[in-house]
Amino acid sequence: MTTDTHTITPTSDPVRSPRRRAGESAQIVVFGTVAWLGYVWLAATIVYAIVLACVVRWGSLDTSLWRPLASGWQQYVVLAAGVTVSTTFLRMLVRNGATRRMLSIAATVTMSAIAAALAIWNMAGFAIEKVVYDANDWPQTLPTDAVIGWNDLPRIALDNALVVAVYYSTGWIIGCCYTRWGALAGTALLLPAVVPAAAMEFLVTPGFAGVNIDVIASWRPHPHPVVTIVAGGALLAASVYVAHRLTRGAPVR
């Protein structure tokens, strides 16, 4: 053992301000989520491309393949991603000195990023499919019997973005309930937790996004885009607010 002391010179790194740490937190959550979510999107795209190529070569279609194969179930994966806010990132960030508020901001950024990415991805999927179907003279029909036209694409993007975002915030809320109140209360709170997601389903165009159960679709209205944007936006804001509040008091277990 040496008798000289270890002298640590003050770090020359720029010391991290709360703002800077909030930015780092957002990066951690965005990359930590997209790191696995991206593989899901990639896998869905590849499976779809293979199936579509086979059908083009050997068969024919009269309904959209993108909808059931790639687009229609993404919101459930995103719901799981929302749950990881409290199960994975709460611990990761707070243990390293970030505040829960930084986590909430990071989760909101992540939610927006995922919603935007999935909206573009879905729109692109339907668009490419439309080109292929048109070339083969197949109708690109949805389970609601609607046929997608080129001018439907922006609406598809909007509806997908809202549905995906609200599923993320729903997962976030569910996770927080489990983290704060345990398994029993968490399960009991599942029902109210999914209300925002269910409500959002009614604000989007049947078939474009969401659960798309035919029974519901048949009597569900086709909301005006302004109604969807205003009511859907308010709904999303409310659900994110609840998630923020729940996160504020969440203990690190």
């Binding site: 640590i8 770090t11 790194d13 010391v15 991290r16 740490r21 780092e24 937190s25 990066q27 951690i28 930590g32 990761m92 960030l93 390293n96 000195g97 970030a98």
Partner: peptide
Amino acid sequence: DVSVADSIAIAAALRPHWD
């Protein structure tokens, strides 16, 4: 499920007096 390198990187990113 986070790598050793990333666990260190996360602490380094969030700790103001990191050495």
